[in-house]
Amino acid sequence: MNTAVSFLELPARLAAWLLLAPLLPGIINRVKAWVAGRRGPPLLQLYYDLARLWRKSVVMSTLASPGFIVGPAVAWVAVAGAALLMPIGAAGGALSFRGDVLLLIYLLALARFATAWAALETGSAFEGMGAAREVSFGVLAEAALIAAVLSLSVQSGSTTLDAMLAPSAWPGAVLLASGLFAVLLAENCRVPFDDPNTHLELTMIHEAMVLDHSGPPLAVVLHGASVKLLLFAVLLSEAALPIGRLAPGAGAAALAGSVLAVTAGIGLVESFMARFAFRRVPLLLTAAFLLCLFALVLAWKGGAQ
């Protein structure tokens, strides 16, 4: 464990994560609008949506248990907790200990469990479909994620996120970044795995799971999803670039720039690609897994020389 975190640092970090996260979907939408030549929704649209949803009343399925409300809350806490573990440049994570990377991965798994649970509450075939897809594709995404984490671990010789995310640039970083980018797209339900804009339930994953949510629980779901997106963008940036080695100011600037670039990249992918057929989703995820695995092999062999 590192030194005691000062009382102010934890709330400040949490506030930064929670307040900045809803910006990302706004940026993606602006990029998509720009490519399509439209004006697009305001940058802060998600903030408006969240504020409105928080005030709206709730319609709940007659079949749903209190787990329908508890599920989104647990998922949100798990994602926020995972975000707190992420190191921010040279400042490190709010809580850092050996093996914290596994806690991060399993917190994301907890979020998946809670979301899928809440989805199954309603007994709707569509939400069952969405939950089944989420947990099934999650298997491949988790394998890819752990292969990525393992390559960082082998490269840096550590199992602490702080040390793992601060290696100097190495050839495997390119492979790792591309693999992680695919995992990011899958875990955050973006094109080509899922289409966040579609309204055809049969083709959706994440949106199908939250069809029946409304009001504050939906706000929590949407906000949690944006935090998760930011988390993956930060993870991808720090895994690919030696941000932890830079001076604090430069590091923060590099991190912000890189997160922006990743976000814009997602927008561009969504503008130029169509969603894949479901049969091909596992193939793409397997490809992402293989990329991470190759990065692992490079890390292993590179260090042995």
Binding site: S57, V58, S124, A125, G215
Partner: peptide, 10 residues
């Protein structure tokens, strides 16, 4: 904010 029950939206 108030909650009402309705049949699952299918």
């Amino acid at each position: 904010v108030g909650m009402r029950r309705a049949v699952t939206w299918d």
